[in-house]
Design a protein around this nucleic acid. Structure first.
Lengths: 167, 167
DNA sequence: GTAGCGTAGTTGAAGGCTTGACTATTCCGC
DNA sequence: GCGGAATAGTCAAGCCTTCAACTACGCTAC
């Protein structure tokens, strides 16, 4: 993490000069954010996987598909929505195909493209998993926060998204 | 159904009946948090790995060791501080050992235990990486936020940690 | 029509992570 | 001391992700 190690006055190319180290308050804020984010994601993923056999990554794919007209999306569009690389998504869809939850279909408008289509079995699996996931998010996130904190969380997230966000 | 082996000393969550679904505001807050957290972590890890060849996971191990008296820790203590499983840490330390940055040492007080010790080379690698990491955290996090937002971030993180947190 | 380039998506190898089993050691009650 | 339970750590198998090719198609200009 942000160790306060002193460094020789030699300039690394991209980050020249002595960096502005984090002060004690920033340290504390950063660690609290990092630890809580890691623990929360880990917890949600574990509970979902354990109760339903669906990892959070797979869950996001199923959700993204279920929210579209026709329950289908181009592979790259799906990858973008899931914050996933093309390659990663391709592998993941292959594994979902093996489970019978998604199938591939050649895209009519663009011969290069593929459509990932959510099957009825896939939708049923999602329906079964959704209450578990919502339960976890409530228990470990919303039930722990005041309305003001929820508001702050949204504000924080949206501010960061404006900087990091999809282009 | 599932055996539900609870690893953490925490109540397993029950998911009875119809869940309390997220309303539109909660949805929005949740997605903003989730996406921003994923993007930020991904960004920090990528920049660090790209500039220094050290992944964020390895960086955390080096930092944890560097902050202790004697720059050494028991394997399990190190795993806890890095939010890592024992197995994962054991693998990671093996790879850090191959790089010459950490070495294992039998624990004098407990024959079962191992100490992970940060070498001088490891400390030097950390010194070189630290400015890069701090630069990323500043650029993508603190430079984007107002003082009030930083305060809110700390509050949020600490509130969640009280619920999820270690022991 | 075809050359050249950009885009969409897949693939395979390499390596990291997780799970569960396994060894070795210590602790504790007798 | 001794036997059983608990603890520390490692290891192997399998899954997942990444990276760097690679195939296939579309678009534009000549």
């Amino acid at each position: 993490m942000t160790a306060r190690v002193s460094v020789a006055p030699q300039d690394p190319v991209e980050f020249p000069g002595e960096p502005r180290w984090l002060d004690a308050d920033e340290q504390r804020a950063w660690r609290a954010w990092l630890y809580s984010a890691q623990l929360l994601m880990d917890r949600l993923d574990r509970e979902l996987t354990h109760e339903t056999g669906i990892s959070h990554a797979y869950y996001e794919i199923l959700v993204a598909l279920s929210e579209t007209e026709g329950r289908m999306l181009r592979m790259s569009e799906l990858a973008d929505r899931c914050l996933s690389s093309r390659s990663r998504l391709s592998h993941a869809v292959s594994r979902l195909e093996e489970r019978g939850w998604v199938r591939r279909q050649i895209c009519p408008e663009d011969g290069r493209g593929q459509l990932a289509v959510l099957t009825d079995e896939g939708f049923a699996a999602l329906e079964a998993a959704a209450p578990v996931h919502v339960g976890s998010v409530r228990a470990h996130l919303f039930d722990q926060l005041s309305p003001g904190q929820v508001e702050a969380m949204r504000d924080l997230g949206e501010t960061l998204l404006r900087h990091l966000g999809p282009r």
